[in-house]
């Protein structure tokens, strides 16, 4: 069984069915790219995996044990093995350091000094050294996104969920983050990367799942899937990355 298994997952809000028959697996050390047009349900899927909401149907299984549909105590334990970076991250009303150490504080991990050290390392990794005492809410969108990423990686999560992590970044910063993500995956982290950016996906993802209108229409190795899309040119869905003059 894969580290993260998703079986027959479905999610509806009233009459609207956002996700249907999702079956996926992600291994540790693997980056799974999740691509699809806006509104296809990528964010919803990530939220379900992060156990922010309960699925309408199906199960989410982490390391062989079901984590969806479980009592809150178990869900909290499961969430503490994951970390998520939202599409438009929000910062706590505090300085950068407190934002980044939030997850560590909440888990009661280590002493204050150790937490600060880890936070500084994480900030360095995302290229924001020296930002510790800045007011987090005065930062630019791109800076906030990187703080959110630092906030996640400082926790050394076993499963990392990323919803458009470099959408607001300039190409240089985005590229640096891409390298960071690559280095993470080599280790023990399973990563799901939801993105619009084909280039990024092709570069980083080992496997790719294509999500269209709530269903997985394709799942396989990234060369196979993305390569195919590029070649076919007849897919009803525009592939944005390939049009950009990188």
């Amino acid at each position: 069984m894969a580290f993260l298994e998703i079986r027959d997952l479905g999610k509806s809000y009233g009459q609207a069915q956002i996700l249907k028959d999702i079956n996926l697996g992600v291994e540790k050390g693997e980056i799974l790219g999740l691509i699809g047009p806006t509104g296809s349900g990528k964010s919803t899927l990530l939220r379900l995996i992060d156990l922010l909401e309960e699925p309408s149907r199906g199960t989410i299984i982490l390391e062989g044990r079901a984590v969806s549909g479980r009592p809150e105590k178990e869900r909290i334990a499961a969430r503490r093995r994951m970390a998520m970076v939202f599409q438009k991250p929000v910062m706590f009303k505090s300085n950068v350091l407190e934002n980044v150490t939030f997850g560590l504080m909440v888990r009661g991990e280590g002493q204050a000094e150790q937490r600060k050290e880890k936070a500084r390392a994480a900030l360095q990794a995302v290229g924001l050294s020296g930002y510790e005492s800045r007011d987090a809410n005065t930062l630019s969108g791109g800076e906030m996104q990187r703080i959110a990423l630092a906030r996640a990686i400082v926790l050394e999560p076993e499963l990392l969920l990323l919803d458009e992590p470099t959408a607001n970044l300039d190409p240089r910063s985005a590229s640096a983050i891409d390298s960071l993500l690559q280095s993470l995956a080599g280790g023990r982290t399973a990563v799901i990367l939801a993105t619009h950016n084909m280039m990024q996906c092709r570069k980083l993802a080992d496997r790719v799942a294509v999500l269209v209108e709530g269903r997985i229409t394709a799942l396989g190795r990234s060369e196979d899937i993305l390569g195919q899309e590029k070649r076919s040119g007849t897919s009803g869905w525009k592939v944005p990355g390939s049009d950009l003059p990188w």
């Binding site: 909290i76 969430r79 929000v90 939030f102 997850g103 909440v106």
Partner: peptide, 14 residues
């Protein structure tokens, strides 16, 4: 903002 709540929960807060 409700996003604060989601952020806190996703970072492992009880």
């Amino acid at each position: 903002s409700p996003h604060i709540r989601d952020t806190a929960i996703s970072l492992g807060a009880n």
